[in-house]
């Protein structure tokens, strides 16, 4: 084996070795790398009890209820299989709307309601002008006229 060939193998060994180590590590930590849980996972009991976590899914159309005189808002998060009711007090992001992606951080109560202390909007990778979205019947967020 020439020295150059040895160095070539050493370089390949570094890349492959580190890659294999990364795969093993990510498999071992898979649960901790989950940024959020879906309603199905929550119903199936995959979330450790008594821990705060994030729930992610779509806001069920027609489920958003605001209470007058406070910032409290109720809505339902669904993955089109299971649904979880969510309660949140605070300001919602601009992109929060029914039928759209949402991620909430908080904990489950005994009554099966998720109490959120932070709500984030998750948008998708689709970009299009409003007219195109309208012709495709995409739900657009209700914008306040300014």
């Amino acid at each position: 084996m020439t020295p150059r060939r040895k160095r070539l193998l050493a370089v390949l060994a570094i890349v492959v070795g580190v890659g294999a180590a990364a795969v093993l590590a990510s498999l071992a930590f898979e649960e901790n790398l989950l940024y959020f849980y879906s309603p199905t996972q929550i119903v199936a009991g995959e979330v450790p009890e008594g821990r705060t976590f994030r729930i992610g899914g779509l806001v069920t159309t027609g489920s958003v209820q605001r209470s007058s005189g406070s910032l409290e808002v109720h809505f339902v998060v669904t993955d089109n299989q299971e649904s979880i009711p969510v309660r949140y007090t605070g300001l919602l992001p601009d992109l929060f709307s029914e039928g759209k992606g949402v991620i909430a951080h908080g904990h489950m109560t005994d009554s099966g309601e998720f109490v959120a202390d932070e709500v984030l909007a998750k948008h998708d990778e689709n970009y299009m002008p409003p007219e195109v979205a309208e012709s495709l019947h995409m739900p657009t967020p209700a914008r306040t006229t300014e």
């Binding site: 790398l33 940024y35 849980y37 998750k122 998708d124 990778e125 689709n126 970009y127 002008p129």
Partner: peptide
């Protein structure tokens, strides 16, 4: 993994999801 960041808009294969 589940992420807050959305997926790729432009992919090597398939139509880009942007007009």
């Amino acid at each position: 993994w589940n992420t807050l960041h959305q997926g790729s808009t432009i992919t090597k294969f398939g139509k880009p999801s942007i007009t």
